[in-house]
Amino acid sequence: MKGLLLKNFKNILPTIAYYAFFMLVFYVVAILSENIVMFTSVSVVLAISVPTSAYVMDEKDNWDKFVLAAGVTRGQLVRSRYLFAVLCLIPLWILSLVLIFILPSGVRAENVIIFLLFDGVELIMTSLLLPLEHKYGADKSRIVLLLLVVIAVFACVMLGTLLHEKIMSIGMTVWLAAGVLLAGIAAMCASMAITVKICAKKDY
């Protein structure tokens, strides 16, 4: 497991500066505009593209064949991918959380909602994407990925509008966002079980 993760991190290391720059820019924008949506939106993109690009590299390298031949089980391989995806999320979450507290306007419920909501969306999207990648390969899944991003952004914008027009009370929205996050966690668990099954049947 350690070797698998280490390989992923080493693989994405050359691109990390690029990601970091991207994040920094939007972090600053978020602070200036006092709206964490600027940062969380970028987080969604990163949360999906980093594990995906790691997967694409593995696919190109025939890495799965190699580690399976080396005695790593299919289950371990799948679990390492989920763990890696979560590990990519954590720094993003920490940064958003910090952002909520350091914004000059103080801690606002709106930002907490956005934080919870986007975290949930990230988890749901990851849990949709990983089984697809393992089943159909990264290339075919990319189209689905694009579609997913569009849907997610649309959903978030809709929710933002609802919130803005005060159709729902703040309290209710917090609960809704928390619900989305919980759904995300549940989706991850279910998704991992599905991917393990997909890989058990796969011929490499």
């Binding site: 390989k7 080493k10 693989n11 050359p14 590299m57 593995d58 190109k60 390298d61 025939n62 890495w63 064949k65 190699f66 031949a69 080396a70 005695g71």
Partner: peptide, 16 residues
Amino acid sequence: KNRIGTVLGETCLPEN
């Protein structure tokens, strides 16, 4: 299984 060494046709190592 580690007592088996393998080479599988195309290179199966991280190119980066």
